[in-house]
Nucleic acid binder design. Structure first.
Length: 536
RNA sequence: GCCGGUAUCGUCUAGGGGUUAGGACGGGUGGUUCUCAGCCAUCAAACCGGGGUUCGAAUCCCCGUACCGGUACCA
């Protein structure tokens, strides 16, 4: 079983095409077949090397690696159509000799006129066949004379072309509605319908899975296989991907390319898993499956016939699942660019990385996609007591809870850094003793004072993160890797903070990136002090 | 216009001559947690329309409608 994905490098990899690539890959992988990647760049006007390389990157990112093709080689190369021109040229001779192809000298204006006339008469606008009867000698003479010519395929009249489409079943077309297709353009470059057939045949492709937009090309291609005496592959046409309004998925629906989803912070396994679900079902009500499991279960016969609407909400759900499953280290690595974009992180060193790994995964587990992580972590890097109190609701609540704020600030003056959840809980209990408040009346004001926000990560996580982050700036050159390290560091710093007012307390984050490659984070004590002061 | 394709909750789908037509996402409600998220429970929500065939049709057939694709010297 040999399958291929053959994109045209005329832009970014669209999710519809990515899904086609995925289906090809799944079938190949699930059956021990070969997956081939070919670049169809015969449209020199629109094709770019840049686009080709990003498409390759996107495929690799999704995990859809190929066994043969561009950049990996193989026995059937080259795998770029622009490098196969000599092959197409050699084969066109055979077609001409067999009378299956002929030169056509019709001008574009003439063709356009024919088309209009046919439409006006209610006829299918196919090529009228004006040049079909031109003798080879005459054609030769005109070409030598400098006349522009294309090569057309001679489609036989009154034939019915029937083929079995693996997803759609029997499909039939009458050749009477098919005009003689252009095989070679006047500039000598082969047209799509010709190049695919030559390539698929020579590369030994056994199954062609492609978008439904190609279904009407299939009879022409079948005729070409017949003319060459080649055995055609099996075809499977998968339906197209639509936007929520049932029109083809386009920019106005939001992200449409793999690169855009990647940039927004979707994990590749999530995008791939979701795409597999669009038009296909693994059955048994199971939906969240890894790539190899999808490959094991994938069957072309089970692919749906109807167009699928791309559901961003469901994608988000799948992504959330994988965001929760991902390794903390990997999650941190892929999230750092978003933190850098917020100017909170530069190039973190080992200590900075260790710190991020203790909090980024928790933030990532609470969002739909990685680009939403920074707002979730703003409490660490962008704390501002004055800014928080500028919000009327926050101010009102803080005012009403003044005893809690007072008790918190007092208590924190005498509390060493709370580097874990237990230390925070113990501190909260002491505040409770001081002010007599409990539950929501206790914790929500604490949240306001310490994070500056009315909502966010649970305090058990947020407060230790604040403390560890604040410690980061003070213990230069000392890598802290584990929770135990942080705990030890917290104990060590006790003597410096204990009972000391210290230098001028930072009331606002100063925006400086510290030695760990992370912007300086205010400690809980500094925050409580500033919050109380700002409250007046 | 012509040719081809498609049609089950809003969306992705399971099923397929006799079912309370199942699941998931999203939505509603209640519970849980300091909050958001999450989690748990629970509710609403579908066989495009019309004719056949049949004891019986969402399922098979025909017609219609809607939508999608094609109708290029783009792929």
């Amino acid at each position: 079983m040999r399958l291929r994905f053959a994109p045209s490098p005329t832009g970014q990899l669209h999710v519809g095409n990515a899904r086609t690539a995925l289906f090809n890959w799944l079938l190949a992988r699930g059956n021990g077949g070969t997956f081939i990647l070919r670049i169809e760049d015969t449209d020199f006007e629109r094709s770019t090397a840049q686009s080709a390389s990003t498409i390759l990157d996107d495929l690799r990112w999704m995990g859809l690696t190929w066994d043969e093709g561009v950049e990996v080689g193989g026995d059937c190369g080259p795998y770029r159509q622009s490098e196969r021109l000599h092959i197409y040229r050699a084969h066109i001779v055979e077609l001409m000799a067999g009378g299956h192809a002929y030169h056509c000298f019709c001008s574009e204006a003439q063709l356009a006129q024919d088309r209009e006339a046919a439409l006006a008469a209610g006829q299918p606008p196919k090529y009228v066949g004006r040049c079909r009867g031109i003798s080879k000698q005459d054609a030769r003479r005109r070409i030598d004379n400098g006349d522009a010519a294309v090569v057309r395929f001679r489609v036989p009249d009154h034939r019915e072309i029937v083929f079995h489409d693996i997803v759609r079943g029997e499909v039939r077309f009458s050749t009477d509605v098919i005009g003689d297709p252009v095989l070679v353009r006047s500039d000598g470059i082969p047209a799509y319908n010709y190049a695919v057939v030559v390539d698929d045949a020579l590369m030994g492709i056994t199954h062609v899975i492609r978008g439904e937009d190609h279904i009407s090309n299939t009879p022409r291609q079948l005729l070409l296989y017949e003319a060459f005496g080649w055995k055609p592959p099996q075809f499977a046409h998968v339906s197209l991907v639509m936007g929520p309004d049932h029109s083809p998925l386009s920019k106005r629906h939001g992200a449409t390319s793999v690169a855009e989803f990647r940039a927004r912070g979707y994990l590749p396994e999530a995008l791939v898993n979701y795409m597999a679900l669009l038009g296909w079902s693994p059955g048994q009500g199971e939906e969240l499956l890894p790539l190899d499991e999808l490959a094991r279960r994938f069957r072309l016969e089970d692919v749906g016939h109807a167009a699928g609407i791309f559901d961003v909400d469901k994608l988000a759900w799948v992504n959330r699942h994988y965001l929760k499953m991902a390794e903390p280290q990997r999650l941190t690595t892929v999230t750092i660019p978003y933190l850098q974009a917020s100017q909170w992180v530069a190039e973190p060193d080992a200590a900075g990385l260790a710190f991020l790994e203790t909090i980024v995964p928790a933030a990532a587990a609470a969002v739909d996609r990685l680009e939403l992580v920074p707002p979730r972590l703003a409490f660490l890097f962008d704390y501002s007591a004055a800014g928080a109190l500028a919000n009327d609701a926050v101010k009102a609540e803080a005012l009403a809870a003044r005893p809690v704020i007072e008790a918190l600030a007092d208590e924190l003056e005498a509390t060493p850094p709370m580097v874990d959840r237990d230390a925070f809980r113990a501190m909260a209990m002491r505040v409770r003793e001081r002010c007599g408040q409990k539950g929501k009346a206790l914790f929500h004001p604490i949240r306001l004072a310490l994070t500056g926000e009315p909502e966010g990560l649970e305090l058990d996580l947020a407060v230790p993160a604040i403390e560890r982050g604040a410690l980061l700036g003070r213990l230069e050159g000392r890598p802290l890797r584990s929770h135990a390290d942080f705990r030890q560091a917290g104990a060590d710093s006790r003597s410096e903070t204990d009972g000391q007012v210290g230098p001028e307390p930072h009331v606002e984050a100063d925006g400086q990136v510290g030695p760990s490659g992370i912007r300086r984070i205010l400690s809980a004590a500094e925050r409580a002090r500033a919050f109380r002061a700002a409250l007046g």
